[in-house]
């Protein structure tokens, strides 16, 4: 069931979402720059802190995203569910395939580490959304 929203609360939600997304993006960039090998950030605890920097903004972003999906009507919620149903096995397939390839050949961590692979996951979700929407349009 769709939650009741007024234009004012809708705007507030939208701004909160934009703010959460921007803070999340900035935290990713800051963490990436702080962990650059050239920078040689010391001590190690500072590097760990930089690596964990995006965790809290990501949690806020996820909270916002879940709240938004809950506020959608039933068809849109189904589309998001189907997108997950497509994206999740694709993510498993990617990780399993990379795992096997790692056993077969030496995959360079410069190309195939976690920080490279995560980008595929939102892409799979987006792909799932496109596939699911095509079914209902």
């Amino acid at each position: 069931m769709q939650t009741e929203t007024t234009p004012k609360t809708e705007r507030r939600w939208m701004y909160t979402g934009y703010a959460a997304t921007i803070v999340w993006g900035i935290s990713l960039i800051v963490a990436r720059l702080a962990l650059d090998k050239e920078l040689q950030l010391e001590p190690t605890s500072l590097r760990v802190a930089a690596a964990l920097l995006p965790v809290l903004p990501t949690a806020v972003f996820i909270w916002f995203f879940v709240a938004r999906v809950r506020g959608l009507d039933e068809l849109h919620r189904r589309v998001h569910l189907e997108a997950l149903v497509i994206a999740y096995p694709l993510a498993i397939l990617l990780l399993v395939t990379l795992g096997f390839l790692q056993m077969a050949i030496d995959l360079s961590p410069e190309d195939w580490s976690y920080r490279h692979v995560w980008v595929y996951l939102p892409f799979f979700y987006f792909l799932g959304l496109v596939i699911s929407w095509r079914r209902y349009r």
Partner: peptide
């Protein structure tokens, strides 16, 4: 109905 126009369309076209 407090749903989106896409939902109405999908119901009408019997896709949903």
């Amino acid at each position: 109905l407090e749903v989106s126009r896409q939902t109405v369309n999908a119901v009408e076209t019997e896709k949903y």
